[in-house]
């Protein structure tokens, strides 16, 4: 069996290896993703929310409930890499470790590796790997740093936003722009005071401001300590799934993602091409010195490069 076949066959070791390969990038990663592209399609749930909102603990409980609706579940949990050392402590998994021995659950911790936006650069490729391996549900847990987690919305079919009382009143909720992120809203730690009030506020804000007029996100109260609200979250996700399938939004999302893939590959190729033709590593210092010695400016340099480049490309052709 070839390596990609083993992944498709569901071999755990190969799936895990495959994710490492796409995390490392390069030609090996391109080849693998090429083999596995369009193999399978999973439903993708993004789970986001501030640190300490209890995302991992909630996913831990959701897994059991989702098992009734999906055959195989993969969880990709993203934690931040240290900007100084590049290392990372991947701590989400600890809270889901009770599923380590479950045959239908695959858990993978990923470091953000310098990527901002709440997920790692390789998360969407890791999704392709587990999709190809037949996981019909993929749950992506974001870093959870707050406002800039827009990437997850593009990536997922349903985004679940988890809030907790104590993080912010109404104004903070509005300010943070998170209203744009979620399709299912969860107020977790409902055993803590202030949760009811937060839920009411969020409901009101959604009613007034939500971008989509034909779908109003539900707001669900949950508690990991008391194991409540879990079924409701799953139901809400399935509802939303139903909604996007009925309205063809799922197809739009897929189109968007393919477009994104093409764009990224294109950008990378153009970048590589330019770097190669401009002999960037050798020239950059020269350019800087030209500017420092006041012989040129960045604008002049670019204009010159642009003119030369057009000549180069013509030659190439």
């Amino acid at each position: 069996m070839t390596f990609p076949d083993k992944i498709v066959d569901g071999d755990i070791r190969s799936i895990a290896r495959g994710i490492s390969i796409v995390e490392s990038g390069g030609i090996e990663s391109d080849n693998l993703l090429n083999e596995l592209y369009n193999r399978n399609c999973s439903y993708i749930i993004g789970v986001t929310g501030p640190p300490g909102a209890g995302k991992s603990s909630l996913i831990n409980l959701l897994i059991d409930e989702f098992k009734h609706h999906f055959r195989k579940i993969a969880i990709l949990a993203v934690d931040p890499s240290s900007p100084f050392t590049g290392g990372a402590l991947l701590g989400d998994r600890i809270r889901m470790q009770q599923h380590a021995m479950s045959e239908s659950v695959f858990i993978r911790s990923m470091a953000s590796r310098g990527h901002i936006g709440g997920i790692s650069g390789a998360t969407k490729d890791a999704i392709k790997i587990v999709s190809a391996a037949g996981y019909d549900l993929v749950i992506v847990e974001t870093v959870g740093v707050g406002q800039s987690e827009i990437d997850i919305v593009k990536l997922s079919d349903t985004t679940v936003l988890i809030l907790v009382p104590g993080y912010g009143d109404e104004i903070q909720v509005m300010k943070s722009g998170i209203m744009e992120i979620g399709e299912v809203f969860v107020v977790n730690k409902s055993d803590k005071s202030g949760s009811e009030k937060l839920a009411t506020t969020v409901k009101w804000l959604l009613k007034e401001n939500y971008r989509n007029k034909s779908y109003l996100p539900p707001v669900i109260l949950s508690s990991v300590t008391n194991n409540t609200g879990i079924e409701d979250i799953v139901k809400a996700v399935l509802n939303h799934k139903n909604y996007i399938e009925k309205n063809g939004i799922d197809r739009d999302k897929i189109q968007e993602r393919i477009k994104d893939d093409i764009n990224i590959l294109l950008e990378r190729k153009i970048n590589e091409f330019i770097q190669h033709h401009l002999k960037y590593p050798e020239n950059i210092e020269k350019w800087v010195n030209l500017v420092i010695s006041k012989k040129s400016t960045p604008y002049e340099i670019i204009r010159e490069i642009k003119d030369n480049m057009i000549l180069d490309i013509r030659e190439d052709i």
Partner: peptide
């Protein structure tokens, strides 16, 4: 923590793990 500071990606299991779940975790996490 120290290995993280040495630039590695570190996953910690927590206490009371069976050898079976340690091995399964190691494989999934590659």
């Amino acid at each position: 923590r120290a290995l993280r500071n040495a630039g590695m990606e570190v996953i910690y299991t927590g206490i009371r793990q069976s050898p079976e779940s340690i091995v399964e975790t190691a494989i999934q996490e590659d």
